[in-house]
Amino acid sequence: MIPTHYFLILSAILFSIGVCGVLTRRNGITIFMSIELMVNAVNLTFLAYARQNHSLHGLVFVFFIMAIAAAEAAVGLAIFISLHRHRETIDVDEANLMHW
């Protein structure tokens, strides 16, 4: 049996790798992939606690998170396609029309 805090440590490391990707990269798709990485780290935390407390609610929540992440990926990528069509770039620093 693997103790729960091993999984929590892995989840924390994955989450901070995701945070680093969002803060450091300029490519919009890479930022989006780092966000997906963060969502998966949270999934892992939910499942670790669900196993420890034998709670089915954790599993159902992870199920819903996966469904919502799929919807978010679809809409987010549609937004990127739109941005690319108008600006010919997906560098997020270039999407600055509403900048002050």
Partner: peptide, 14 residues
């Protein structure tokens, strides 16, 4: 319903 909204939104946006 959320997934339906996402499908419609993705089609409209792209």
């Amino acid at each position: 319903i959320l997934l339906l909204a996402a499908i419609v939104g993705a089609i409209v946006l792209s």
